[in-house]
Computed example of a mutant assay.
Amino acid sequence: MKKYIILALLLLSATLVARAQSFELTGQITGQNTGYVHLSYQDNNSKWVNDSCALKNGGFSFKGNINGPQIVYFYGAIKSRNVEDPNSTDFFIEPGNMTLQVAAGDFKNVVITGSKTQGENAELQKLKAPIYEEMKPLSQAFRDANIKYVQAVKNKESDKVTTDLKEKASAIHDQFDPYWSRIAQVDYHFFDAHPNSYVTVYELQRYVGTLSADSLKMYYGRMSPVIQQSVYGKELSVQIAKLLAGSPGSIAANFTTTDVNGKPLDLSAFKGKYVMLDFWASWCVPCRHSSPHMIQLFNKYHAKGYEVIGIAEDDDQPDAWRKAIATDGVGIWNNVLSGFDRDKAIKGEKNEKFIADKFGIHSLPTKILIDRNGTIVGRYDKGTPEEEAQMDKKLAESLN
């Protein structure tokens, strides 16, 4: 009899869960009576849905099935897909009934009721808003600098002109660091106060490239099983595993590819030597700036059994990659492309040839040192002088 009771409870639970996964979002736009609004979200089969609804006297309604709380993209009469378009925004929906109030041309100040998760998200965004407001002049300067650089490339200006413009844009970009640090502190306080929030697990994915694997594991370990098994929780777990696979103590994943000269390259063939995997790109200014020092290290330790494999994320622009190799003089070591496939990435398909994915690479430049036995003994992805000194010290201890 107890078995039947348990079974009945399980069936009831399953039914409740199934019903709980449906959502309905009804809303009203002031200042616009006709036209369309659009909602992009992932359904309960994790497939992207791009839904549209015709406005009737400014009103609309969306219905669907989802696996749980998630961030969605909502937009109306946009002029571009730029996130700053005044007729677009994002927010959290969740199973159940929700209402939305928004004004045409002011989607950023949307008001959602019925979504506890969005309430938490609004709380966090309100704390960060003053910092983003301070960043606006710098953001505009960076945007203008990038436009000038892109225009110069289109106009086929000289290498000196395009390089100078890229350097200027990069220098402006570096000025964001203090702001990002302040924003990170706000986020970390929120994570500590809301360990079981879907907002926390969603926002943590932004920090996979900056937080250590231990810190990410700590935050993940504080989450309830429900959050850990959510779509965002599972993805965070995958990213942590990849980061650990590319961190000290792990055996380096093997990869085979073709180098810049068309010759096959197999990482396992380098066993018995110290190998630095240098993840970079021709368009990455800090990467290019690190080349002279990397050349010095290569010349100093190569005869002692030290190799470098440059792994460039230039799969879409191989000519720029080859030109950068020649310009920077890094053809003295092995150079390969990362294996990134844009089509597979867009479709969410697995790409076994993507080398950066095997090592949890989320920022450039990143350098990974592998010892003679194939074990990772160093990961350098912060780009600071202190980290460079640590890398130099490790090489000196290992090869002198």
Rank of each mutant, 00 (worst) to 15 (best):
S22V: 04
T26V: 11
T26H: 13
G27S: 02
W48L: 13
C53Y: 03
C53P: 02
N57D: 15
F60S: 08
G64S: 07
N67C: 07
Y73K: 11
G76K: 00
K79W: 05
N82G: 10
V83K: 10
E84K: 03
N87T: 06
E94C: 13
E94W: 10
E94F: 12
V102H: 00
L127F: 05
K128W: 08
K128E: 04
K128R: 13
A129T: 06
L138H: 07
A141D: 15
R143D: 11
K148L: 11
K154Y: 07
D159V: 08
L165Q: 10
K166G: 14
W180C: 00
S181K: 13
I183A: 11
P195E: 06
N196D: 15
V201P: 12
Y202V: 00
L211P: 03
G221P: 14
M223L: 09
Q228H: 07
Q228F: 12
Q229R: 12
S230Y: 04
S230K: 01
K234V: 00
K234D: 03
E235C: 01
Q239T: 08
G249F: 11
A252Y: 03
N254L: 08
T256W: 09
T257R: 11
V260M: 09
V260S: 10
Y274I: 01
V275W: 13
D278F: 01
C284L: 00
V285G: 04
P292C: 03
M294H: 14
M294S: 08
Q296K: 14
L297K: 06
K300F: 08
H302D: 05
Y306H: 06
D314I: 06
D316P: 05
D316R: 13
R322C: 02
A326Y: 14
A326G: 04
N335T: 04
F340N: 08
K347D: 15
F359A: 07
H362D: 02
S363M: 14
N373H: 09
R379P: 07
G383K: 14
E386S: 05
E388W: 09
Q390V: 07
N400P: 11
